[in-house]
Design a protein around this nucleic acid. Structure first.
Lengths: 150, 150
DNA sequence: GATGAAATCCGAGTCAC
DNA sequence: GTGACTCGGATTTCATC
Protein backbone atom coordinates (compact mmCIF):
# COMPACT_ATOMS: atom_id res chain seq x y z
CA UNK A 1 0.00 0.00 0.00
CA UNK A 2 1.79 3.05 -1.26
CA UNK A 3 0.64 6.64 -1.51
CA UNK A 4 -1.45 5.97 -4.62
CA UNK A 5 -3.32 3.07 -3.03
CA UNK A 6 -4.14 5.16 0.02
CA UNK A 7 -5.41 7.87 -2.26
CA UNK A 8 -7.69 5.40 -4.01
CA UNK A 9 -9.00 4.32 -0.61
CA UNK A 10 -9.70 7.91 0.35
CA UNK A 11 -11.55 8.65 -2.86
CA UNK A 12 -13.63 5.49 -2.79
CA UNK A 13 -14.49 6.11 0.84
CA UNK A 14 -15.74 9.58 -0.05
CA UNK A 15 -17.62 8.45 -3.16
CA UNK A 16 -18.11 4.78 -3.85
CA UNK A 17 -19.73 5.50 -7.21
CA UNK A 18 -16.68 7.04 -8.83
CA UNK A 19 -16.04 5.40 -12.18
CA UNK A 20 -12.65 3.89 -12.78
CA UNK A 21 -11.93 6.63 -15.29
CA UNK A 22 -12.74 9.39 -12.80
CA UNK A 23 -10.77 7.66 -10.07
CA UNK A 24 -7.76 7.30 -12.37
CA UNK A 25 -7.81 11.00 -13.10
CA UNK A 26 -8.16 11.85 -9.40
CA UNK A 27 -5.10 9.84 -8.37
CA UNK A 28 -3.04 10.58 -11.48
CA UNK A 29 -2.52 7.14 -12.97
CA UNK A 30 -3.75 5.53 -16.17
CA UNK A 31 -7.20 3.88 -16.09
CA UNK A 32 -5.66 0.44 -16.55
CA UNK A 33 -3.33 0.86 -13.60
CA UNK A 34 -6.09 2.30 -11.49
CA UNK A 35 -8.31 -0.64 -12.33
CA UNK A 36 -5.71 -3.19 -11.30
CA UNK A 37 -4.86 -1.38 -8.08
CA UNK A 38 -8.49 -0.98 -7.10
CA UNK A 39 -9.13 -4.65 -7.81
CA UNK A 40 -6.19 -5.56 -5.59
CA UNK A 41 -7.47 -3.34 -2.78
CA UNK A 42 -10.73 -5.25 -2.82
CA UNK A 43 -9.04 -8.64 -3.12
CA UNK A 44 -6.71 -7.92 -0.20
CA UNK A 45 -9.57 -6.76 1.99
CA UNK A 46 -8.49 -3.14 2.29
CA UNK A 47 -11.90 -2.18 1.00
CA UNK A 48 -14.44 -4.58 2.40
CA UNK A 49 -17.62 -3.31 0.75
CA UNK A 50 -19.41 -0.40 -0.87
CA UNK A 51 -22.72 0.56 0.67
CA UNK A 52 -25.40 2.99 -0.35
CA UNK A 53 -26.35 5.10 2.65
CA UNK A 54 -30.13 5.07 3.00
CA UNK A 55 -31.75 8.01 4.75
CA UNK A 56 -33.05 6.47 8.01
CA UNK A 57 -36.07 8.76 8.09
CA UNK A 58 -37.10 7.53 4.63
CA UNK A 59 -37.55 4.01 5.91
CA UNK A 60 -39.05 4.69 9.34
CA UNK A 61 -35.82 4.60 11.32
CA UNK A 62 -35.52 8.24 12.24
CA UNK A 63 -34.92 7.69 15.95
CA UNK A 64 -31.53 6.63 17.25
CA UNK A 65 -31.06 5.02 20.66
CA UNK A 66 -27.91 3.84 22.41
CA UNK A 67 -28.28 1.15 25.04
CA UNK A 68 -25.89 -0.06 27.72
CA UNK A 69 -26.35 -3.61 28.95
CA UNK A 70 -25.04 -5.38 32.04
CA UNK A 71 -25.31 -9.15 32.24
CA UNK A 72 -26.14 -11.16 35.35
CA UNK A 73 -23.07 -13.30 35.24
CA UNK A 74 -19.80 -13.01 33.37
CA UNK A 75 -19.51 -16.49 31.99
CA UNK A 76 -18.66 -17.40 28.40
CA UNK A 77 -22.08 -19.04 28.10
CA UNK A 78 -23.87 -15.87 29.19
CA UNK A 79 -22.04 -13.81 26.61
CA UNK A 80 -22.61 -16.31 23.83
CA UNK A 81 -26.31 -16.59 24.63
CA UNK A 82 -26.74 -12.84 24.69
CA UNK A 83 -24.89 -12.30 21.44
CA UNK A 84 -26.92 -14.92 19.64
CA UNK A 85 -30.22 -13.61 20.94
CA UNK A 86 -29.45 -10.03 20.10
CA UNK A 87 -28.22 -10.77 16.57
CA UNK A 88 -31.73 -11.46 15.34
CA UNK A 89 -32.89 -7.95 16.16
CA UNK A 90 -33.74 -6.09 12.96
CA UNK A 91 -33.35 -2.67 14.54
CA UNK A 92 -29.85 -3.34 15.84
CA UNK A 93 -27.07 -1.50 14.02
CA UNK A 94 -24.12 -1.94 16.37
CA UNK A 95 -23.34 -4.38 19.17
CA UNK A 96 -20.02 -4.13 20.96
CA UNK A 97 -18.63 -6.09 23.85
CA UNK A 98 -16.85 -3.52 25.98
CA UNK A 99 -14.71 -3.17 29.08
CA UNK A 100 -16.09 -0.78 31.69
CA UNK A 101 -19.35 -0.16 33.47
CA UNK A 102 -21.32 -2.05 30.83
CA UNK A 103 -20.88 -5.40 29.20
CA UNK A 104 -22.42 -4.40 25.88
CA UNK A 105 -23.18 -1.18 24.10
CA UNK A 106 -25.91 -1.29 21.46
CA UNK A 107 -26.92 1.15 18.76
CA UNK A 108 -30.54 0.83 17.70
CA UNK A 109 -32.64 2.58 15.08
CA UNK A 110 -36.41 2.71 15.43
CA UNK A 111 -39.27 4.77 14.04
CA UNK A 112 -40.05 6.71 17.22
CA UNK A 113 -40.18 6.46 20.99
CA UNK A 114 -43.34 4.40 20.91
CA UNK A 115 -41.61 1.97 18.65
CA UNK A 116 -38.64 1.83 20.99
CA UNK A 117 -40.89 1.20 23.94
CA UNK A 118 -42.42 -1.77 22.15
CA UNK A 119 -38.96 -3.10 21.38
CA UNK A 120 -37.82 -2.50 24.92
CA UNK A 121 -40.70 -4.48 26.37
CA UNK A 122 -40.70 -7.30 23.86
CA UNK A 123 -37.06 -7.70 23.12
CA UNK A 124 -34.56 -6.03 25.38
CA UNK A 125 -35.87 -7.15 28.75
CA UNK A 126 -36.49 -10.61 27.31
CA UNK A 127 -32.84 -11.12 26.42
CA UNK A 128 -31.14 -13.91 28.37
CA UNK A 129 -29.17 -13.06 31.51
CA UNK A 130 -29.67 -9.31 31.47
CA UNK A 131 -29.25 -7.60 34.83
CA UNK A 132 -29.50 -3.99 33.83
CA UNK A 133 -30.39 -1.89 30.81
CA UNK A 134 -29.56 1.76 30.50
CA UNK A 135 -31.15 3.73 27.67
CA UNK A 136 -29.67 6.80 26.00
CA UNK A 137 -31.98 8.52 23.56
CA UNK A 138 -30.05 10.45 20.97
CA UNK A 139 -31.22 14.05 20.97
CA UNK A 140 -28.86 15.28 18.29
CA UNK A 141 -26.52 13.53 15.89
CA UNK A 142 -23.42 15.70 15.81
CA UNK A 143 -21.45 13.16 13.80
CA UNK A 144 -22.57 9.81 12.49
CA UNK A 145 -20.33 7.34 10.72
CA UNK A 146 -17.67 9.82 9.78
CA UNK A 147 -15.16 8.57 7.22
CA UNK A 148 -11.77 7.39 8.44
CA UNK A 149 -9.30 10.23 8.27
CA UNK A 150 -5.88 8.79 7.41
CA UNK B 1 -41.70 5.54 -2.80
CA UNK B 2 -43.37 2.36 -3.93
CA UNK B 3 -42.25 -1.22 -3.66
CA UNK B 4 -39.79 -0.93 -6.54
CA UNK B 5 -38.08 2.13 -5.05
CA UNK B 6 -37.66 0.40 -1.72
CA UNK B 7 -36.19 -2.55 -3.52
CA UNK B 8 -33.67 -0.31 -5.24
CA UNK B 9 -32.75 1.15 -1.85
CA UNK B 10 -32.24 -2.31 -0.42
CA UNK B 11 -30.03 -3.43 -3.27
CA UNK B 12 -27.90 -0.29 -3.31
CA UNK B 13 -27.48 -0.50 0.44
CA UNK B 14 -26.21 -4.05 0.12
CA UNK B 15 -23.94 -3.30 -2.84
CA UNK B 16 -23.32 0.27 -3.91
CA UNK B 17 -21.33 -0.84 -6.93
CA UNK B 18 -24.19 -2.56 -8.72
CA UNK B 19 -24.38 -1.37 -12.30
CA UNK B 20 -27.63 0.11 -13.46
CA UNK B 21 -28.11 -2.91 -15.72
CA UNK B 22 -27.69 -5.36 -12.84
CA UNK B 23 -29.93 -3.30 -10.61
CA UNK B 24 -32.63 -3.17 -13.28
CA UNK B 25 -32.58 -6.94 -13.58
CA UNK B 26 -32.72 -7.36 -9.80
CA UNK B 27 -35.81 -5.21 -9.39
CA UNK B 28 -37.51 -6.28 -12.64
CA UNK B 29 -37.75 -3.02 -14.56
CA UNK B 30 -36.08 -1.78 -17.73
CA UNK B 31 -32.64 -0.15 -17.42
CA UNK B 32 -34.12 3.19 -18.44
CA UNK B 33 -36.75 3.13 -15.73
CA UNK B 34 -34.27 1.90 -13.16
CA UNK B 35 -31.91 4.70 -14.05
CA UNK B 36 -34.59 7.36 -13.69
CA UNK B 37 -35.86 5.96 -10.40
CA UNK B 38 -32.39 5.67 -8.92
CA UNK B 39 -31.60 9.23 -9.95
CA UNK B 40 -34.77 10.39 -8.21
CA UNK B 41 -33.90 8.50 -5.03
CA UNK B 42 -30.61 10.40 -4.89
CA UNK B 43 -32.22 13.73 -5.76
CA UNK B 44 -34.88 13.35 -3.09
CA UNK B 45 -32.33 12.44 -0.44
CA UNK B 46 -33.48 8.88 0.13
CA UNK B 47 -29.97 7.78 -0.63
CA UNK B 48 -27.58 10.31 0.80
CA UNK B 49 -24.26 8.86 -0.32
CA UNK B 50 -22.34 5.78 -1.39
CA UNK B 51 -19.23 5.03 0.63
CA UNK B 52 -16.47 2.51 0.19
CA UNK B 53 -15.87 0.78 3.51
CA UNK B 54 -12.17 0.92 4.29
CA UNK B 55 -10.76 -1.79 6.54
CA UNK B 56 -9.84 0.12 9.73
CA UNK B 57 -6.86 -2.10 10.43
CA UNK B 58 -5.42 -1.26 7.00
CA UNK B 59 -5.13 2.41 7.92
CA UNK B 60 -4.03 2.11 11.55
CA UNK B 61 -7.46 2.39 13.12
CA UNK B 62 -7.85 -1.15 14.38
CA UNK B 63 -8.89 -0.19 17.91
CA UNK B 64 -12.40 0.97 18.69
CA UNK B 65 -13.25 2.94 21.81
CA UNK B 66 -16.57 4.27 23.06
CA UNK B 67 -16.50 7.24 25.39
CA UNK B 68 -19.18 8.72 27.63
CA UNK B 69 -18.83 12.39 28.51
CA UNK B 70 -20.48 14.48 31.22
CA UNK B 71 -20.19 18.24 31.05
CA UNK B 72 -19.72 20.59 33.99
CA UNK B 73 -22.73 22.70 33.29
CA UNK B 74 -25.74 22.16 31.11
CA UNK B 75 -25.87 25.48 29.32
CA UNK B 76 -26.31 25.97 25.58
CA UNK B 77 -22.88 27.60 25.50
CA UNK B 78 -21.24 24.58 27.13
CA UNK B 79 -22.77 22.24 24.59
CA UNK B 80 -21.89 24.43 21.63
CA UNK B 81 -18.30 24.82 22.82
CA UNK B 82 -17.91 21.09 23.34
CA UNK B 83 -19.36 20.18 19.97
CA UNK B 84 -17.14 22.59 18.14
CA UNK B 85 -14.01 21.47 19.95
CA UNK B 86 -14.70 17.80 19.41
CA UNK B 87 -15.52 18.16 15.71
CA UNK B 88 -11.89 18.73 14.81
CA UNK B 89 -10.85 15.35 16.15
CA UNK B 90 -9.66 13.15 13.29
CA UNK B 91 -10.23 9.92 15.18
CA UNK B 92 -13.86 10.71 15.99
CA UNK B 93 -16.42 8.66 14.07
CA UNK B 94 -19.61 9.34 16.02
CA UNK B 95 -20.69 12.05 18.41
CA UNK B 96 -24.20 12.00 19.84
CA UNK B 97 -25.91 14.25 22.32
CA UNK B 98 -27.93 11.92 24.50
CA UNK B 99 -30.43 11.89 27.33
CA UNK B 100 -29.36 9.83 30.34
CA UNK B 101 -26.33 9.41 32.56
CA UNK B 102 -24.06 11.00 29.97
CA UNK B 103 -24.29 14.17 27.94
CA UNK B 104 -22.38 12.81 24.94
CA UNK B 105 -21.45 9.43 23.63
CA UNK B 106 -18.43 9.26 21.32
CA UNK B 107 -17.12 6.55 19.04
CA UNK B 108 -13.42 6.77 18.37
CA UNK B 109 -11.04 4.74 16.22
CA UNK B 110 -7.34 4.70 17.03
CA UNK B 111 -4.34 2.53 16.22
CA UNK B 112 -3.95 0.95 19.63
CA UNK B 113 -4.25 1.61 23.36
CA UNK B 114 -1.08 3.66 23.41
CA UNK B 115 -2.53 5.83 20.71
CA UNK B 116 -5.74 6.20 22.66
CA UNK B 117 -3.83 7.15 25.78
CA UNK B 118 -2.09 9.93 23.87
CA UNK B 119 -5.43 11.13 22.57
CA UNK B 120 -6.97 10.90 25.99
CA UNK B 121 -4.29 13.06 27.52
CA UNK B 122 -3.97 15.59 24.75
CA UNK B 123 -7.51 15.90 23.54
CA UNK B 124 -10.26 14.45 25.67
CA UNK B 125 -9.33 15.94 29.02
CA UNK B 126 -8.53 19.22 27.31
CA UNK B 127 -12.05 19.59 25.95
CA UNK B 128 -13.95 22.57 27.38
CA UNK B 129 -16.27 22.07 30.35
CA UNK B 130 -15.79 18.34 30.76
CA UNK B 131 -16.58 17.01 34.23
CA UNK B 132 -16.27 13.31 33.66
CA UNK B 133 -15.05 10.91 31.00
CA UNK B 134 -15.85 7.23 31.01
CA UNK B 135 -13.96 4.99 28.60
CA UNK B 136 -15.27 1.74 27.12
CA UNK B 137 -12.69 -0.21 25.15
CA UNK B 138 -14.34 -2.43 22.59
CA UNK B 139 -13.20 -5.99 23.13
CA UNK B 140 -15.25 -7.54 20.35
CA UNK B 141 -17.29 -6.08 17.52
CA UNK B 142 -20.36 -8.28 17.31
CA UNK B 143 -22.07 -5.99 14.83
CA UNK B 144 -20.80 -2.79 13.28
CA UNK B 145 -22.80 -0.54 10.99
CA UNK B 146 -25.35 -3.12 10.05
CA UNK B 147 -27.57 -2.18 7.08
CA UNK B 148 -31.06 -0.89 7.78
CA UNK B 149 -33.53 -3.75 7.63
CA UNK B 150 -36.80 -2.42 6.22
C1' DG C 1 -47.01 10.76 -16.02
C1' DA C 2 -44.44 6.93 -16.21
C1' DT C 3 -42.73 3.17 -19.20
C1' DG C 4 -39.73 0.50 -22.34
C1' DA C 5 -37.20 0.16 -26.95
C1' DA C 6 -33.71 1.91 -29.60
C1' DA C 7 -29.62 4.71 -30.48
C1' DT C 8 -25.38 6.93 -29.18
C1' DC C 9 -21.53 7.51 -26.49
C1' DC C 10 -18.34 6.42 -23.01
C1' DG C 11 -16.16 3.46 -19.62
C1' DA C 12 -14.86 -1.42 -18.08
C1' DG C 13 -11.90 -4.91 -18.67
C1' DT C 14 -8.19 -7.22 -21.34
C1' DC C 15 -4.54 -7.42 -24.42
C1' DA C 16 0.31 -6.63 -26.06
C1' DC C 17 4.11 -3.92 -25.13
C1' DG D 1 3.04 0.86 -15.67
C1' DT D 2 1.08 2.61 -20.27
C1' DG D 3 -1.63 2.71 -24.57
C1' DA D 4 -4.94 0.58 -27.62
C1' DC D 5 -8.88 -2.24 -28.63
C1' DT D 6 -13.39 -4.50 -27.96
C1' DC D 7 -17.53 -5.18 -25.73
C1' DG D 8 -21.14 -3.89 -22.77
C1' DG D 9 -23.40 -0.57 -19.94
C1' DA D 10 -24.78 4.40 -19.02
C1' DT D 11 -27.62 7.85 -20.49
C1' DT D 12 -30.82 10.26 -23.67
C1' DT D 13 -34.48 10.39 -26.99
C1' DC D 14 -38.72 9.03 -28.51
C1' DA D 15 -42.98 6.55 -29.25
C1' DT D 16 -46.50 4.37 -26.40
C1' DC D 17 -49.94 3.15 -22.95
Amino acid sequence: MDRIDKNILRHLQADGRLTNAELAKAVNVSPATCHRRTQALFDNGHITAVHGKVNPASVNRGTLVMVGVVLDRSTPESFAAFEEAVSDTKELLDCHLVAGDFDYLLKIRVKDMTDFNTMHNKMLIALPGVRQIRTFFVLKEIKENAPLDF
